[in-house]
Design a protein around this nucleic acid. Structure first.
Lengths: 221, 221
DNA sequence: CGACTTGTTGAGTGAACTCAAGGAGGGTGG
DNA sequence: CCACCCTCCTTGAGTTCACTCAACAAGTCG
């Protein structure tokens, strides 16, 4: 069977077949090894990536090395918006991954030329912005338990097979901790607390969600 | 002298005069008293606002009343993107404010019809997203001192008269604290620390920036 | 003038951080 | 195939720093 590529995933509903073919023509398929760096903040952004397979962590660094994972990218998402001369974030593959690489200028022209493509990019930007705002609310005001429960719930929504109660977590604990703004030790203890409260059940490479909702209403219960 | 309106501020460089007139025709000027609520999260979003004068705090609430200020809006900015059937955030005027109100559907159609307007909205969305990402980095990884110093520096950049070292802060300490994810008491102590280190000088309704840069490199010095 | 809001400061607590050690995989090479 | 190393995760102990509770000063508005 043919493996789904980024253009298919990204444009599946909103682009017509001509536009889809055009997007596929612009795309260059590239593979990354586990942990491999894809883009680095500050470097010239001649290319733009859309993820086809695997998962990617997207992060920003402070001068002294502290870093924060902004989000985890799944197939069908761009790593960043195709704008700006320089990358404004860094990205590494989590496990093996494959992506579509676009020349930024070519993609930009195509976005200009195609109304549907413009719409898609706008939708993507709006979605990212909304997610960022929810994330800020949690980073600023949430307890570790709320943050983790909300992260698991929202991550589950993004996974393709969401009927299952099992939620796959391909990223490391360190990455999740860096995403939620806490120390890895705190995250580990928080996993233990949620398991003790029978909200989740920790398994290898993921968790089973038993009752995530319960934890989301009040700060400490 | 005529007071600058949102359409002028927002479209000043990127729209031609016909487009600018069109945008002005779509706008309905409205005024708000100090503290008055403008939009409320979850309500139907039939209208969209662009700020003409004053300042606005934009925030999200958790179920139990805790709230986080996502950003402060200045003249020339939209309160939120003109997309989605419901407001996904709340907004209050800080002091007296005036804004342009648009019917969401009319504005949406205009954005569809005008390439320049599409571009402007995309730029706005991208700018918001970039700011959000910087904010997340700080919320997750920054010390209170770094957060406040960075907030003051970036707020200064957004103010029209940035030659002056004096930075006007129209919002309350509570609002700033809710923006940086800390208790008002902590914010107050952080102001005191920065003043003690001669990085800022606290004045009524603002601060004078003496040496903001110094505090931004290392976590504790 | 009095009531209320806002900001600051003090005291004490608690939660998340750091430092440290130990166990459990996973990969590599002998 | 096993021994070894290394990274990842967890758990424990102690500390720190931001939070909560509280009081007070200074405006602000009726």
């Amino acid at each position: 069977m043919a493996i789904a590529s980024f253009p298919d995933l990204f444009g599946k509903n909103a682009l017509n077949s001509r536009e889809l073919r055009k997007l596929q023509r612009l795309a260059m398929s590239v593979r990354f090894r586990s942990g491999q760096n894809i883009v680095r903040e500050g470097e010239t952004a001649n290319e733009v990536y859309g993820l086809s397979q695997g998962a990617v962590r997207v992060y920003k660094k402070l001068a002294d090395g502290r870093h924060h994972v902004l989000r985890f990218v799944l197939p069908g998402d761009f790593l960043e918006l195709p704008r700006g001369k320089r990358h404004c974030l860094s990205a590494d593959a989590i496990g093996a991954a494959s992506a579509s690489r676009f020349a930024r200028s070519e993609l930009f022209e195509f976005v200009q030329a195609s109304r549907n493509m413009t719409q898609l990019i706008m939708d993507f930007a709006a979605e990212q912005l909304k997610r960022s705002q929810d994330q800020m609310l949690l980073l600023g005001r949430g307890t570790p338990e709320e943050q983790l429960a909300e992260f698991l719930a929202s991550w589950r929504k993004r996974l393709p097979r969401r009927t299952d109660r099992f939620v796959s977590l391909p990223m490391s604990r360190r990455d999740i901790a860096a995403h939620l703004g806490m120390a890895p030790e705190t995250l580990s203890r928080t996993f233990a607390k949620l398991e003790q409260k029978e909200i989740i059940h920790v398994e290898p490479d993921g968790v089973e969600l038993l009752d995530v909702r319960r934890n989301l209403s009040s700060p400490k219960s």
